[in-house]
């Protein structure tokens, strides 16, 4: 018995043994032919919101970006914002001014007072941007991937810089599911080649080494990439990546809490978190390789 126990324990150790992992290994490069600067109109009218299909209505038309904001787009914004002083480099991070939240002192609530707040951590190895001391540029293979490691402040600043804004949760959800109450942007069921999620086996992930990574924006459009066949997974309004890839910051600021909400699931979570009503939240200064955003106008 002792021998078997030792064998099983050794086997456990061997199977779980350490292996040097290159987290920065280059990803494959694919062109998705989806234009990240394109927008689509979401018409005014009712839709079914939330897990239990509550009938609600948005009484105005609005436009939403067809894809998440890319690294290339965000680098362009940073250069412009640094040039005109609306963003500054301070202590290894890009920061900008925020006018503050109402504060009610509720238990666990943290005050977000007026002041400068982080947009991105410049030195972070997982930021997919280069910085030469004066200008940003996207890392070559990552230019058409969603911008990540960006805080809520950084996302909001990007949208507002161009006269746009972050979507409210309601706007985001309508753009993602249309009006028929579907749980995923493309319909009722999820397959591995519908979206980028944990262990979805896309060409960018290697679960035995570095895990899941972002896919280029608009990747799941029905194209085949080096033999990897995707399903066209746009929402009823033609919006891509509304499930998986990266969580997306939304605009709402709720009473008695400092958390900001994200929607859509990401490359790092299981498929149940890709259902359109699932919410994630974090402090507005939170940055992550699994969090990005898009804008509305």
């Amino acid at each position: 018995m002792k021998r078997l126990l030792i064998t099983l324990l050794v086997l456990t150790f061997v199977l779980t043994a350490c292996q040097k992992v290159d987290f920065q290994s280059a990803p494959p490069v694919f062109e998705t032919n989806i234009d990240p600067s394109s927008w689509t109109v979401i018409p005014a009218g009712p839709f079914l919101q939330g897990q239990f299909n509550e009938q609600v209505s948005i009484d105005y038309d609005y436009e939403i970006m067809v894809t998440d904001v890319t690294n290339a787009q965000y680098a362009e914004f940073l250069n412009a914002a640094l040039a005109d002083g609306s963003a500054i480099l301070n202590n290894g991070q890009i920061e900008g001014y925020y006018a503050g939240d109402p504060f009610s002192g509720t238990r666990h609530e943290v005050e977000i007072a007026a002041g400068n707040y982080i947009y991105i951590p410049v030195g972070d190895p997982y930021l997919k941007l280069n910085f030469d001391g004066s200008a940003f540029s996207p890392k070559d293979e990552w230019a058409n991937h969603p911008m990540t490691m960006v805080s809520w402040f950084g996302a909001k600043a990007y949208c507002e810089y161009y006269g746009w804004r972050l979507p409210t949760e309601m706007e985001w959800e309508k753009a993602a599911r249309g009006t028929d109450g579907r749980p995923y942007p493309w319909g009722n069921e999820i397959a591995r080649n519908n979206a980028n999620y944990y262990s979805s086996r896309d060409p960018f992930e290697d679960m035995s080494r570095y895990g899941s990574r972002t896919t280029p924006v608009g990747f799941y459009n029905g194209s085949t990439y080096n033999g990897y066949e995707t399903i066209n997974s746009a929402s009823p309004y033609g919006v891509y990546d509304m499930a998986g890839n990266v969580w997306q910051w939304t605009a709402n600021i709720y009473d008695s809490q400092h958390y900001r909400y994200m929607r859509g699931g990401s490359k790092d979570v299981y498929e149940n978190n890709l259902r359109v009503w699932v919410r994630n939240n974090a402090t507005p200064t939170f940055t992550s390789p699994g969090v990005g955003f898009r804008c509305v106008r």
Binding site: Y126, M207, P289
Partner: peptide, 23 residues
């Protein structure tokens, strides 16, 4: 471990958990 570097830890703990619960 930070999010971007968690996979090896996830793999080890998942395998250990699977073996443990499996046995």
């Amino acid at each position: 471990v930070i999010e971007a570097e968690q996979q090896p830890l996830l793999n080890r703990t998942t395998i250990a958990g699977d073996i443990g619960l499996g046995v």
